[in-house]
């Protein structure tokens, strides 16, 4: 699937949150068309990496470089990164009381289209695209009439993230523990959403705790992150090895 065009290149990244260094000389390169899985114990820095890529201002980059489709990301606001094609499915999707799903999704899409020199979609066109996407991730019309994540169950929130992924159709999808807390049916829907999204023209970075999702999503690479850096990379078999042996044998090295 790989066509050797680099989509994301992270070089010697050092980053901290609340004055504690989390990422330590972190390096990772993802090519177009690849699916990468980042695994590791709690506190290893996986979510920090996801947030830093998306530009969460609570995280401070101390040094290093991030290049996304040939452009540096570090000087760009979160909305610009989004418009360039970087999508983050949140570990804890945020509730926006009173903000209708429809309005939120339309604004999101229009805003990204405008940045990329396209006209906003007509209501009719938008509706047909939205309905198509909603069907793919098994989301009902009623769901679209609700307020963004307000009163959603944990599973509904995660499915909402996959709906947005499908609708926005970014270049790089970063999924931050989207699989945690899901029952088996929801896990299948989420996994299908990721597999359907994946194509030779985009890439996936799946951050996860559990091997479980890898029964449904087939990664090209599995990386193990411990204490702020990748300590081992391999293919899918590495995930199975981790399932058996845990992380201890890697951190002792």
């Amino acid at each position: 699937m790989t066509n050797n065009k680099i989509i994301l290149e992270i070089k010697n990244l050092n980053a901290s949150v609340a004055n504690t260094q989390i990422l330590k000389d972190f390096n990772l390169t993802i090519n177009m068309g690849e699916k990468h899985t980042l695994m590791g114990p709690n506190g290893s820095g996986k979510s920090t990496l996801a947030n830093i890529l998306a530009g969460n201002p609570e995280y401070i980059v101390d040094s290093g470089e991030i290049n996304f489709l040939g452009q540096t990301l570090l000087d760009k606001a979160p909305e610009i990164r989004a418009c360039l094609g970087l999508f983050l499915a949140f570990q804890y999707p945020v509730e926006l009381p009173g903000v209708r799903m429809w309005q939120f999704l339309k604004s999101s899409l229009d805003s990204q289209r405008e940045y990329n020199g396209k006209d906003p979609l007509s209501t009719k066109d938008f509706d047909s695209i939205l309905n198509e996407c909603a069907e793919k991730v098994d989301i009902s019309q009623d769901f679209l009439k609700r307020n963004v994540n307000e009163g959603f169950s944990g599973g509904e929130k995660k499915r909402n993230e996959i709906l947005q992924l499908t609708l926005i159709n970014p270049k790089l999808a970063i999924l931050d523990e989207t699989d945690s807390g899901l029952d088996i049916d929801a896990l299948k829907i989420v996994s299908n959403g990721i597999e359907n999204f994946s194509s030779p023209n985009n890439s996936v970075l799946l951050v996860t705790h559990y091997q479980r999702i890898l029964n449904y999503v087939k990664p090209d690479y599995v990386h193990v992150m411990i204490d702020g850096k990748i300590v081992k990379s391999g293919d899918k078999s590495l995930a199975l090895e981790l399932e058996k042996k845990g992380y201890d044998w890697l951190s002792k090295k």
């Binding site: 201002p57 979160p78 909305e79 990164r81 949140f90 999101s108």
Partner: peptide, 27 residues
């Protein structure tokens, strides 16, 4: 919250618009 603003920005919406959207929802 910073989280609400960041979430909305991550979908491509500017900070000012994100804030407006959240306040508008409140009203």
């Amino acid at each position: 919250s910073d989280n609400q603003l960041f979430y909305t920005q991550q979908r491509g919406i500017s900070l000012e618009d994100a804030n407006y959207m959240i306040v508008n929802g409140f009203c």
